[in-house]
Each structure stands twice: as structure tokens, then as C-alpha cells.
Design a binder for these strands. Structure first.
Lengths: 332, 332
DNA sequence: TCAGCTTGTTGAAGCGCTCTAATCATTGTG
DNA sequence: CACAATGATTAGAGCGCTTCAACAAGCTGA
């Protein structure tokens, strides 16, 4: 920086101002500084800059499970919104491990990001609220009733309700739900399923799993082995639906003739025509935008009260759902 | 830090030493410092630390395309290896955009990571070598003949050869290759395909695409519309194979009866039984370990000469390849 | 002409840490 | 008992930047 100042014939302070585009720098010195900086290939040291200014103009994004194609799409939206807002992103993933997640959050705090977005977070609310004392936090895809962190969520209760209504309309009565356990939003999805089944006077049938293929496959096995009649399965997310699809294939069931199957998230895999999974779309890009907006409001406009956005999902009907084979017999 | 020092009844310098586990600190003061730090919830400021020491003990990982399930698996291996090496990771993704990628690299440099891993990078070699002047770089899944950056690669020529040999053994003669364009490793895969076809006396048939589903689907359409006989398609990666599968489904082809299909990367999607794509496994976890090892050697042991690792892939035969329908007629 | 503004510029302090060299205690040696 | 050697501790400089108060210079209007 000293070199640049000397070369441009000004003081170090002015170099700082000029490079950050301050209005109170004359055009001539600004040009001189710019030229000198270019010629010297000078890049300001972010560390020093932060140390002096407490700003990094960087947001952190924590992705819980990189293997779940749902998250990259949310990341897309976030990145784009951050770009237009003039912030850059740094990411980290936790691979579904709580310790990893806690450490990743600490890394972000150590690096003094200006804001932090947690997607599909699974650590306890206490950990998050503790971290929120150091940095503004937005939690995406995990409902939290907090006064200190913002949340951006899909209405998972409604989504589940839409799925069940869709299946019931097709004539299904025996709908089994593959629960997502601690996965993001899975409690709401379960509740939506149960409430809707109950409202229609049908019995719930829940097998527990997680948001992975392997556990979805296992859960489907358990469901089939339970001896209960099942004509449709509603999995907590696309990944577990894919696992269930594996099991159904293996067990000789044809989807949707013998069994209807629904996922949740509308990931790219679900959209493959070869799979054509009926599922719920969460409008992920929108989630991302809202998350960045919330952060910018806090950082730049000093908002301190928490906001909680909930956006409505939509049903995407593809080729894994159809009327149950025995519809004619059981009738309406 | 001053507070901690005061509370522990020692100097600031000793707090620094104690917290970093220096050997020249008495057990008693070490304990006192630890306790004081805990009580105060003190976390050293990474920025300040770096400013003074030039170290962050963090590696950066740039993932080119988060939507391609190949990369998360590589990231898994990298993260694990970094963990055991005592480094933490920061990630960033570029979404297949060169400008984004360049900016992401700059962000990492600004954040002064101790080392940088580029996976599936697409920017020009010049950009990478320029960046390598600021930080040790390992390039994964992109062959580069550089004297300044390390590379860790799969033997894509060999992998392609294995695919073609497999198909030829099944009786295929008319094998079409869906090229990956600028995608990582795609040049080698193309070369392996062409060389092997040529060696067996068969004509090459290449349609160009990229490493995405959409372009794979399009390429398959072009191939089918070309009027040339095709009994098998070898796509540059799993994603484009999936796209081709969509097209084949739509066009009424049954895989593998009417058409065999092979991918590359052995992603989780390929492994879904419902898809069961024959593909090449790159031993991604190993790639990740080697990358971290290379970085640590440079950072901690001062290696300056570039190393280039190439590891052998293996063929994973699933259910999208079979003998061509007309084998009996065309015979051997 | 001059007080009072602007506008542009600068010196110096300070951000929170590490590191070097110096200091202080303690022990061992001839 | 002086002196070297060892081990533990500390003061203070410095890392590269921002920021703030102060200042110089050119303008304004009375």
C-alpha cells in the first residue's frame, strides 16, 4: 500500500479512500491511485482491512448435506442474490454431522463473515442462538421459533397436505409416510400428513427414516414387511423416495401400477424422465433470495428484530402416482 | 486477549503461546490461561492472527459444479483428509461459470487460505498459474502439464478404453461417444474412446455436449437423428448419460435391449437400482486424500516441485449395457 | 478583505494478534 | 560464590489496513 501511495504521489490514507471509491477524492488522484495500483498488481489485504474496519463483505453459507441435490439449488439462488447485493460467498458443508456443523459455524465466525446462512441445519437451537451473538444468522429450511435469528421456510405442513390430498383424490386410502427423522422440515411434513389423513378419516402409517437413499430403502422394506395394506408411499424427501424406489423395484412392485410414490423437494433427479417422481417444489431460488435480503437488511439497515418467512410450495405431478389398482373394488 | 491475560495474571504474549500449545509454557500458567479463556468465552481473532503470522490453517476447496454429484464425493474425501491433517476447509462453487471461478479463487486468496484445491476447474491455465504465485494449488480432475501446480487425476484415457473394450466384448460395433466438451477430463476420455475404436478397426462417432443432463439429452437427439447406426452410447459423464437416458426413453428405446448406455464417474445417481448405469468409478475419496497430502507437503515440508498423480479407475457394470439386439445377425 | 464553507488531503492512532529479543528466576558448575 | 546455562516470562514492535481529527487551499457572500 505504501508503494502504491508513493508511486501515485499521495498518502496511504488517500489510497485507501480512492480504492474504496469514496466520494471525497478528486478525480485526478483517484486516477493516479488506480493506475499505480494496477501497475503494481496491488490487492488489499482482506485480513488487515477487516481488522481495521470490522467488515468483510462476505456471507457464509453452510450446507448440511452436499449429497442432497436440494441444497445446491438453494445455493444457486443465494449466490445469485449475494452477487447482486455486492457480497461474496464462502461455503462449507457438514455432511450431516453435528460436530462438523458446529465447527463449520465456528470457522465462519473466526473468518468474521458479515452474515451466515444455515441450510438444513441440524444442530441444537442453542448452538445457533449462541453463534447469533457473533454474527447475523438466517436459517433456511428449518423452522425455528427464535427472536434472534431469521428463518426462511417452505410451508411443509401445506406441502404434505397437498401430497396427501393428491393421493386421496386418486383413490388411495392406505398411504404410508416415510418420515425424515431429524431432517430439515420433516416434523412439519409428518404433521401435515397425519392431520390430513385424520381429517379424511384414514389411519396414519409412519415408518421412520432419514433424508438419505439408504434409509429410504430400508424404511420401504420395513413398510412392506409390516403386513399392512399400502397402495401409496409418501417419502419425506426425494432422496429417501429414490431409496424406496430401489426397494420397490427389487421387490417386484411396478410404480405406479402397484404402488404410487411421492417425494419432496423436486430435485433434479426427480425430474429425470426415467424416474419422473411426483414431488413438491419448494421454490428454492426464492428461498435463497429471501435469505440474502434478510441478511442485508440486518447488516446494512440495522434491523435487529427477527423475521420469519414462510412460502407456499407447489405440487409437481409426474409419473409415479396413479389411481390404485384395486380402486374399482374398494371404490369411493 | 488482554482480558484473558489479566484474568490469568500473565502477559498477553504468554496467552498467545499457551493457547497455541507452545512447549515453553509452564503447566501452571497454561492451565490458568486455559481457564481464563474458557470463562471469558475468548476466541482468537483469525484475522489478527493471520496478519501477524501469515497462517490460517485453512484450505480452500473450489467445486466447479455443485449440481454434479461427482464433486460432493470428492469433497468428502478432501474434508476427511483435511480433518486428520489438522486443517479446516472453506468451500466455494462456480456453477460452471469462468468469471465466477476466477472471482472465487480471488476470494480464497484474499482470505489467505494456506492452500487451494481446484476440482473440475475450467479457467485457463494462465489464471491458475497466476494464482499459484500467491498460494499452493492442487488441481484435481483436470490434467495440466504445469511445473508450479500439483495435479491429481484419474486416468481418463484408460477409463474410456475400459468402457469401449467392455462394449466391444459385448458385441457392439457402433458406439457413439457423447463428448464432454470443456468438462474436466473430457479430452482424455474422447482420446481413449477414439484410440480404442481405431485399434479395433471401428469408426468413431462423436457428438459434442457438455457435462450436464440437458446437453446430454440434446446430444442423444442429434446422434439418433444423424441416421448412423448406433447400438451403444458412451457419455462423457453420468450426468450427460442421464440426459441421454431421458432422450432414449422419450424416443421409445429400451435400455439396454435397444441401446446400451455407459456413463462416467459412478455418481450416486448412477448407482440407483432404478437406473443402474454402467459407469467408471474414479476412486474419488482417494483423489481427495492425495490432494490434501500434496498440499500439506508443500505447506509443511516446503516442497516446491510439482507432483502429478494419476490413479487407475475401474469399470462398474450395471444394467444399462448388454449385447446388441442384432448380434446374431452381425455376429463376430 | 475576511470569516466561514467546502473540498481534498494527511498524519497518526489503533484494530488483535505473533514474534523477536530482552529480562528475570532458577539451577548447575568449577 | 561468581558465572554460565536453562527455562519461563514479558515488553514492544510490527503485520496492512481504516478512520478520525486536523489541516490546507480554494470559494463564497457580506
Amino acid at each position: 500500500m505504501d508503494d502504491v501511495a508513493r508511486r501515485a504521489g499521495v498518502s496511504r490514507a488517500l489510497v485507501s479512500l480512492a480504492l474504496r471509491g469514496s466520494a471525497k477524492v478528486s478525480d485526478s488522484s483517484r486516477a493516479a491511485v488506480r493506475r499505480a495500483a494496477d501497475e503494481l498488481g496491488y490487492r488489499p489485504n482482506l485480513m488487515a482491512r477487516h481488522l481495521a474496519s470490522k467488515q468483510t463483505r462476505t456471507f457464509g453459507l453452510l450446507i448440511n448435506d452436499l449429497h442432497n441435490p436440494y441444497f445446491p439449488s438453494v445455493a444457486d439462488g443465494i449466490k445469485r442474490a449475494a452477487d447482486t447485493g455486492g457480497y461474496r460467498m464462502l461455503m462449507n458443508s457438514a455432511f450431516l454431522n453435528d460436530d462438523d456443523e458446529t465447527r463449520a459455524i465456528e470457522t465462519f465466525i473466526d473468518y468474521r463473515v458479515d452474515g451466515l446462512i444455515l441450510t438444513g441445519s441440524r444442530v441444537s437451537a442453542a448452538v445457533i442462538e449462541q453463534a447469533a451473538r457473533s454474527v447475523p444468522i438466517v436459517v433456511v429450511s428449518r423452522p425455528m421459533d427464535s427472536t434472534v435469528v431469521d428463518t426462511i421456510n417452505n410451508d411443509d405442513f401445506l406441502g404434505a397436505q397437498m401430497v396427501v390430498e393428491h393421493l386421496i383424490e386418486l383413490g388411495h386410502r392406505h398411504i404410508c409416510h416415510i418420515d425424515g427423522g431429524r431432517g430439515a422440515g420433516s416434523a412439519q411434513r409428518l404433521a401435515g400428513y397425519q392431520a390430513t389423513m385424520h381429517r379424511h378419516g384414514f389411519a396414519s402409517h409412519v415408518v421412520s427414516a432419514a433424508f438419505t437413499e439408504a434409509s429410504g430403502a430400508l424404511a420401504a422394506q420395513k413398510a412392506l414387511a409390516s403386513g399392512r395394506t399400502i397402495s401409496a408411499m409418501f417419502a419425506g424427501n426425494d432422496l429417501s423416495a429414490l431409496g424406496a424406489l430401489d426397494t420397490l423395484d427389487d421387490s417386484g412392485f411396478t410404480v405406479p401400477d402397484d404402488m404410487s410414490l411421492v417425494g419432496y423437494d423436486n430435485t433434479s433427479v426427480a425430474a429425470l424422465r426415467h424416474i419422473g417422481l411426483t414431488t413438491i417444489d419448494q421454490h428454492r431460488e426464492r428461498l435463497g433470495e429471501l435469505a440474502i435480503d434478510a441478511l442485508i437488511e440486518r447488516v446494512e439497515h440495522g434491523r435487529t428484530q427477527a423475521v420469519h418467512h414462510v412460502i407456499a410450495p407447489s405440487l409437481v405431478v409426474r409419473s409415479t402416482t396413479a389411481a390404485p389398482r384395486d380402486q374399482a373394488i374398494r371404490g369411493q
